[in-house]
Design a protein around this nucleic acid. Structure first.
Lengths: 239, 239
DNA sequence: AAATATTTGTACGTATGTATA
DNA sequence: CTATACATACGTACAAATATT
């Protein structure tokens, strides 16, 4: 119950709470030590000693950093540097979509429009990167998609792998992360809608093959047409 | 010490810690009550009673939701529904940029490329929306930008207002939020670089006026040229 | 295979700072 | 200014998960 420990005299103009300083110091620790995702961090008790704050404060700071995917915690094992992924934005956007009651279609349509815009904007570099490139992985993915679609089954994971792999050759990996994030927001939000018709799924499946073929041909225009075909059934359901 | 209770309906495949269930239940509370950003939430003690968990768990859950901007807490006042903004992604991306040691230019270049791509992709709807529209606000903003640039002063806030206002007429506000987010990541990351030359600032200032003029003329092509002019000095410094 | 040490997760009590009426 | 409600912080004890011996 250490009470009157003046906390280093009130010269500080700090509106800062203990947790917020702990957050900053843990971040600085990671940067100063040059740690990378997956690297181990000190234990909670060690952080308490190093930062001079209680365990509760350290834990609350850690929860914040975990929410931002800057820190990852494994129960009974320890704390590690996180992947610093787009997960926070995905969670945020999904929740934001759920906030609007009768406006569900509007939120989802905005997300789909962003996906369409991103895909179209990347048509040139993607078709340039894939021209005459042979990759059996994408062929098998497209095969799986068409087979699943013909059986009226979902092909969510294959769809994700397809779109991610398509952007992998790009220099700028931020585009890949963004695309993956909006793909996730999309697929997490769409279940609120009615299930798509099976003919729509087949049409969408064919669009994937068309995108791949256009990319291999280096034909950006055909690639954009395939994108339109890919999203057409969904857009129709949203209007 | 209530041990791990059945916790009703074990439909979830989650790890199910107390905090995580508290997170889910607070989210559900907001959605079920149809609350909107700014609306008040129950107090901590009330949440403890309602959710049947300890105060520590509730607090840790709240910290997570605060980090995601789903909950906002005002010390000594109470908890409220947050703005569900893009702040989490901004924080994440800025930190990610700091993680790479010698690769600073690469991370910033990726971000700038995303901004350029987004701006270009929105050239058509923006020029369509602003054609023959009169808005004195944008004129004064551009005036301020040019005046500040001529005095070799920064015009960060004016720059932000300019780009935000330009996208305001769009139907899809998600584009606005995205643009704002990457603008923030950009301006928070760029201080690591050398200060730009004053002639670059003047060139950039002129580009803003060119963008506005092209938008008012409904000339998407000229708009894209102005975008190129806008980012040219920065891109040159990154290569 | 089982006991043990380490580490995170949960709970509770208490004291203190802060904003509002 | 006082009173009240509320969030912040600390400390301790124990439970649960993981790794090691």
């Amino acid at each position: 119950m250490q009470t009157s420990r003046g906390v280093m005299s009130g010269l500080t103009t700090t509106p800062m709470t203990q947790s917020s300083t702990a957050i900053a110091e843990i971040k600085n620790y990671i940067l100063a030590k040059g740690l990378q995702p997956g690297d181990a961090l000190p234990t909670e008790s060690q952080l308490c000693a190093d930062l001079g704050v209680s365990r509760s404060s350290v834990r609350e700071a850690v929860r914040t950093l975990v929410a931002l995917d800057i820190v990852e915690v494994r129960h009974g094992h320890g704390m590690f540097v996180g992947k610093v992924s787009m997960r926070p934005m995905v969670e945020s956007l999904v929740f934001r979509g759920l906030l609007n009651p009768g406006d569900d279609h509007r939120g989802l349509r905005d997300i789909v429009e962003v996906r369409i815009t991103l895909d179209n904007a990347l048509a040139d570099p993607v078709t340039r990167a894939w021209k005459n490139r042979h990759d059996t992985d994408l062929d098998t993915i497209v095969d799986e998609i068409e087979e699943l679609a013909s059986k009226r089954e979902l092909f969510t994971e294959q769809d994700r792998r397809f779109h991610m792999r398509l952007l992998e050759p790009l220099d700028n990996h931020l585009f890949l992360h963004l695309t993956e994030a909006f793909w996730a927001v999309h697929t997490l939000t769409v279940p609120l809608l009615d299930a798509p018709g099976s003919e729509d799924m087949i049409s969408s499946a064919k669009a994937h093959r068309a995108m791949l073929q256009a990319a291999r041909a280096g034909d950006a225009q055909a690639y954009r047409q395939a994108i339109t075909q890919h999203y057409a059934p969904l857009l129709a359901a949203l209007t």
